[in-house]
Computed example of a mutant assay.
Amino acid sequence: MIDPGQVLAWGLPRMRDLPWRRERDPWRILVAEVMLQQTQADRVIPKWESFLAAYPTPAACASASLGDVLRLWQGLGYPRRARNLHSTAAHVVEYFDGAVPDDLDALLALPGVGPYTARAVLAFAFERDVAVVDTNIARVLARTAGERLTPKRAQVAADSFVPLGDGWTWNQVIMDLGAVLCRPTPRCGECPVAATCAWRVAGHPDPDPAIGSAGVSGKQARFDGSDRQARGRVLAALTVGSRPVEDFDERILTGLVLDRLVVVTNGRACLPD
């Protein structure tokens, strides 16, 4: 069980100072949330700032080539996110006059926007009383419940704790609780809900209910020697210009072409400019 008052009392004086928390512009929030998917905040901050300096609005992003967006994204990883963000910008310009929508269904219809990102835009840009469930919050929910949760149960549980009129603050604070204390290896001695956390009260029995629960990320596969590393090297090489297809592993290059991240013309590979 979670007492929102205790969590807010713990979290408000300790809230992490992240630059997107000083924003309410929905495009800037959306860019941050897309970048934060599978990437730590300290790596995101400089890329978020440089991306928004180049593309301060959806219209600016939509008017750029995907190749230019990928060049700016270089080093952040998971480049399909850049492609989806570029497609989202074009969708917003075409269907919403360049303004990120404030409707859940409309947000979910945007390329690459899932339940978490859509609700994050509503909560953090529009200050709606909706609950977000990222990997940090999902750990808190599963452990306090003392069991693995399905996506539906996790969302229902998260929704039940949002204090009326305090959705923005609540989501930030419970996210910090998961990021700072309710880690994969938890720091229960400092936790404001330790006394009512079912898993902690039971003595931390195996298995940890957070493992395999909806929304909780597992360990990422090894990067060194992976296809992700090989794909990143191809894209990095193409940021400075086209190259003969023979320079690259055929399987890796074919995958990038199928993902619409690389174009092959006359035996040369290049970014989609």
Rank of each mutant, 00 (worst) to 15 (best):
Trp48Glu: 11
Met35Val: 07
Thr117Ala: 09
Pro56Glu: 09
Arg83Met: 11
Asp129Tyr: 10
Arg71Ser: 09
Gly114Trp: 09
Ala60Gln: 04
Pro111Phe: 06
Ala53Tyr: 07
Ala106Asp: 08
Tyr78Cys: 03
Leu12Gly: 01
Val132Leu: 05
Ala106Ser: 14
Ala120Lys: 03
Gln40Trp: 02
Arg21Leu: 04
Leu107Trp: 00
Leu30Tyr: 04
Leu66Thr: 08
Lys47Ala: 11
Arg16Ile: 08
Leu72His: 06
Ala54Ile: 05
Leu18Lys: 07
Tyr95Lys: 12
Gly77Asp: 00
Thr57Arg: 10
Tyr116Glu: 12
Thr57Cys: 09
Asp42Ser: 11
Gly75Val: 01
Arg16Tyr: 13
Ser50Arg: 14
Thr39Ile: 07
Val132Asn: 02
Arg80Leu: 13
Thr117Ser: 11
Tyr95Leu: 15
Thr39Pro: 08
Pro58Leu: 06
Gly67Pro: 08
Ser63Cys: 07
Leu18Arg: 12
Leu12Arg: 15
Val69Trp: 05
Leu76Glu: 02
Ala89Phe: 05
Phe124Asp: 01
Pro46Ala: 15
Gly114Glu: 08
Gln40Met: 06
Glu49Pro: 03
Cys61Arg: 06
Asp105Phe: 02
Asn84Ile: 09
Gly77Tyr: 00
Leu107Cys: 01
Glu94Trp: 04
Pro79Ala: 13
Val93Phe: 11
Gly114His: 07
Leu85Trp: 03
Pro56Gly: 12
Phe126Ala: 08
Asp17Glu: 14
Tyr95Ala: 15
Ile45Lys: 11
